[in-house]
Amino acid sequence: MTIPHPPATRVTAALARRGRWRLPEVAFWALALAALFLLPGRYLILNEIAILALFALSLDLLLGYSGIVSLGHAAFFGLGAYTAGLLARHGVAEPVVGLFAAAGAAALVGFATSFLVLRGSDLTRIMVTIGVALVLGEIANRMAWLTGGADGLQGIVMGPVLGTFEFDLWGQTAYGYSLAVLFVLFLLARRIVHSPFGLSLCAIRDNPLRAAAVGIPVGGRLVAVYTLAAAYAGVAGALLAQTTQFVSLDVLEFHRSADVLLVLIIGGTGYLYGGIIGAVLFRLVQDELANLTPQYWYFWVGLILVVLVLVGRERVVATLAAPFAGLLRRFGRPVREA
């Protein structure tokens, strides 16, 4: 039984509960940090996971919180990667500067193209997002004098992070750097989704008609979140370019947009940790399967997708996660009946 509170305090408490830190969350981040010292030899894959997680987190802002289906999110990832790569190649070696530039460039293009996805059905949104990614891919391909075209952008030299932490051969700095960026951007996203602005995004996702009818400027909010998500994806791409010191046309390709969607779907949408958990699972499974049949990895990706939706995304994730259901709920995973 709850102790009877004055209603206002009860309401405040109920609203505050949404954004409270829970123990498993703290434990998760502590674990991720511990890996920086306890798992030498695994830094490369940890770094990739952190980057993929950030990319999926950015898609979660769109799909999970705002209900926008995108199949071209790689556009912003790739744009960020090329921006950071080109900056480094032309003498700006400070990684953090590169991150800001990548975020800015991706946000700019995200803002400009957000107006294309404002209206229209899922189908037009899917087509337009694919189209934007294709256009960027085509531009990168044609501007080979700048981007290196099909050979990729080579000769990226990074300086130490913040002038202090040199990138090492084992990737310890790389992982630490990516993890730090992921954590900071995660905190920001967490803050945003628990704000009135974030709540209004959920409202738009649930019912745009009603959202407009309570005075929420639906178009403006979607433009804002699309721009934000683009910036996030841009940063993820920049991290990839900086930590691997290479960018190829691959960063803009369709399969990357599809991968990140799968990652997010595996982890579950709408609670921020879905992208991170999905990234861990995806890369670990990929590592296993790719050892068996390196070039046929996509068969298994496809199979996972088909089975996942055939049985019902919510149901599969719920069943697999059943032993951890209580835990996941404490991560803030929304409980929805199928």
Partner: peptide, 13 residues
């Protein structure tokens, strides 16, 4: 105050 993005929900009396 609906577009406040930094403030938590539930902190406006």
């Amino acid at each position: 105050t609906g577009r406040d993005w930094w403030r938590r929900v539930g902190t406006k009396g």
